[in-house]
Design a protein around this nucleic acid. Structure first.
Lengths: 143, 143
DNA sequence: TATTGTTATACTCTATAACTATA
DNA sequence: TATAGTTATAGAGTATAACAATA
């Protein structure tokens, strides 16, 4: 399967290789950005995912983070003890707990998004046409 | 500074936002890939960085991973105890220790690179022309 | 004196297994 | 019986501070 993709889409593989290099380079930058907000990388991930007024079941959080559910308990504990989110019982299924951003959490999330929004310096090497093309292709990739 | 970039390069910001979404989505996939090779995400990062026959000073590893030097000690301990790398004293400066891939480590690194090479399914939605364009732009971004 | 790597310590992240409450 | 979340436990990642060897 992988070999078939590699044979039939050599350019896709090259693109993916370059993106992987970007991912690993970025891995090192998230901890320092997180540190400035007194967050861990995973906590950033959670805040990045949460939309204001859009509760998320804890189980779905575990799926999205690709980690065990037991892990989410402590993660949510720490975010809740900092007043960034709150647990609420689900109305539909009393086993389920959902988490919601507090106003404080929403403000910190906005701050996080603002800091994440600044493109790294190398982007300035791209022409406007290249930037637009990149956006169009990434939108197809993520859409 | 950030505001200036945002005002002058709105498309760069949009492109970066989309890449950030890709990064966070990918964050969840690295642990499972790592698990298949009995590695942690950081250990994958180290192996991804190491070229065969190209020693890296431990201090430079700490810089690249953007973590404290004290952290690298345990990280290298665990990789060394698994026989994937070895420490060697530097000839130039006897304070410095460099790490080198063992043959076993080089094989595991090759396996890792092979698995990382498979592009996610959405890449098949792109035409060949789009793939080539994406490669060209990413090369400028990373070059 | 300054720097490289280590050690001691403490906290967070992570998984596994056993448990509780609900379905 | 099965599922959602918790707890207990253990190992790995991370930073800070103090330390040894070397520059």
């Amino acid at each position: 399967m992988m070999a078939r993709v590699a044979r039939r889409q050599p350019e896709a593989c090259r693109a993916w290789e370059l993106l992987t290099r970007l991912f690993f380079a970025q891995r090192g930058q998230l901890p320092s950005l997180a540190g400035e907000l007194d967050l861990s990388p995973v906590q950033c991930h959670v805040l990045h995912l949460m939309q204001p007024d859009q509760p998320i079941p804890m189980g779905r959080l575990a799926e999205t983070l690709a980690c065990d559910a037991s892990n989410v308990t402590g993660l949510v504990d720490r975010l809740e003890s900092r007043g960034l989110i709150v647990r609420r019982a689900s109305a539909d299924d009393r086993r389920v707990k959902v988490i919601v951003l507090t106003p404080t959490g929403a403000r910190l999330r906005a701050e996080l998004h603002q800091r994440l929004a600044a493109p790294p310096d190398p982007f300035q090497r791209l022409s406007e046409a290249e930037q637009r093309t990149l956006v169009r292709i990434l939108e197809r990739l993520l859409g």
